[in-house]
Computed example of a mutant assay.
Amino acid sequence: MSCKRTLLFLFLCGFAALSVSVKCTSELLEGTSCTIDLSSKNIDKSKEVKWVHLSSELVIHRRNGKIRADSLSGTKIEDNGSLTFQSVSLKNTGKYKYSFYDTKGTETSGEEEIKVFAKAPKPTVRIDCKDGLKLICDAGNRTDLSVSWYKEAKSMNIGELSLKSDQVEANKPYSCRVSNTVSNEESNSVTPSCKDAGTGAPGEALFPSTLFGFDFWIMVSILAGGGALLLLLICVLIICACRSCREKTKQEQDEDELRLRVLQDQNGAARSKHTARGQPAPPIPLEDPCSQTPAQSQAQPKAQTRGRPPPPPEDDEDNPPPLPRPRNKQHRKRHEEPYRLME
């Protein structure tokens, strides 16, 4: 029985702790739920209460128990007139002016100010060996943070973003801490070393952790693979172009050889015709002696006007011209005179 009572008591205490709202302080962490209390607690719910954010002119107004205006999102007015934030954000930073009427009808006004800060990110220590051994505390582009350095877990009392070469000792652990008024974060310890600090040789931490919003080495692998594929494509295009040029050259050579062969065939045919011109003339056809008339004597001058025969062809040892055949005696008797060459 006593055990049940103890559990019930603890449950009621936890519920009461959750139901009690946190009072807003002047400096708040982003995402905190809190309430801005009024200076007077004697406010009737039916009376008028108004809160105004002076930076943005946003208003939340309650009158006669009803909300008349609510442009201040994420807030609500409690029964006692207090302003409660469900989750404060950076835009809620600023002054708030309130005005209300108490039970006596007297108007009361005042101002409350809050400042909201974002949570400090975890920094990283980068090693720079370009101009000697140097350490840089990287916390993004935050300007509301203060920096402190630690060497071997002991504060160095240095509040700058970087440590110069004369402030760094090789082979000793260093870390940095960034903080604001509501939060702080510390980096992992780093033991700086450079292969050749005098010449600016890069150390292991010179590479950024991200590239285009993704992991650095993953992006390097993707870019390297894309470059290899592009190089392979260029090689394939070059090989195809070379093969096309080679086939085109071969086709032109084949066409030239075919054209030369045709010309050789034509020259051979012309040479055969030239050799045939040296053959003797065909024999004169026989005529009937009865058909000869006295006009035959007039035909002799015509025979004398006959042109000279073509000159004999040049001697060709490989292809000598054919020898002429002798005429028959009977053929000579039928003519009055033998065939004579014209001088």
Score class of each variant (00 low, 15 high):
41 K>Y: 11
146 S>I: 13
54 L>T: 14
76 K>M: 06
132 G>H: 03
27 E>R: 11
32 T>C: 06
30 E>W: 07
142 R>S: 15
65 G>T: 02
123 P>F: 03
64 N>E: 14
136 I>L: 14
54 L>I: 09
108 T>P: 00
107 E>P: 07
130 K>A: 11
93 T>M: 02
101 Y>G: 00
71 S>N: 13
114 I>Y: 03
96 Y>G: 01
23 K>G: 11
92 N>Y: 10
107 E>A: 04
127 I>Y: 03
108 T>A: 03
25 T>R: 10
48 E>M: 05
52 V>H: 03
141 N>V: 10
97 K>L: 10
78 E>T: 14
73 S>F: 02
71 S>L: 06
121 P>F: 01
35 T>W: 04
99 S>M: 11
48 E>H: 14
116 V>S: 05
126 R>N: 08
92 N>C: 00
107 E>H: 00
39 S>P: 15
59 V>F: 05
73 S>K: 14
56 S>H: 10
140 G>R: 14
119 K>Q: 12
137 C>P: 06
81 G>H: 11
84 T>C: 07
28 L>R: 01
67 I>S: 04
137 C>V: 09
27 E>H: 12
110 G>T: 06
86 Q>K: 08
16 A>H: 06
126 R>S: 03
62 R>I: 02
77 I>H: 08
76 K>D: 01
70 D>R: 04
54 L>C: 02
54 L>N: 13
143 T>L: 11
78 E>L: 15
58 L>E: 15
63 R>V: 13
61 H>A: 07
88 V>T: 05
58 L>F: 08
147 V>E: 05
63 R>A: 15
124 T>G: 02
47 K>S: 15
35 T>F: 04
69 A>V: 15
19 S>W: 04
57 E>K: 13
38 L>H: 12
151 K>Q: 14
49 V>K: 01
105 G>W: 08
109 S>C: 02
90 L>P: 00
62 R>C: 04
68 R>E: 15
79 D>H: 12
85 F>G: 07
82 S>F: 02
88 V>K: 00
133 L>T: 10
148 S>A: 08
69 A>W: 03
18 L>G: 13
75 T>A: 03
131 D>H: 15
96 Y>H: 09
107 E>W: 00
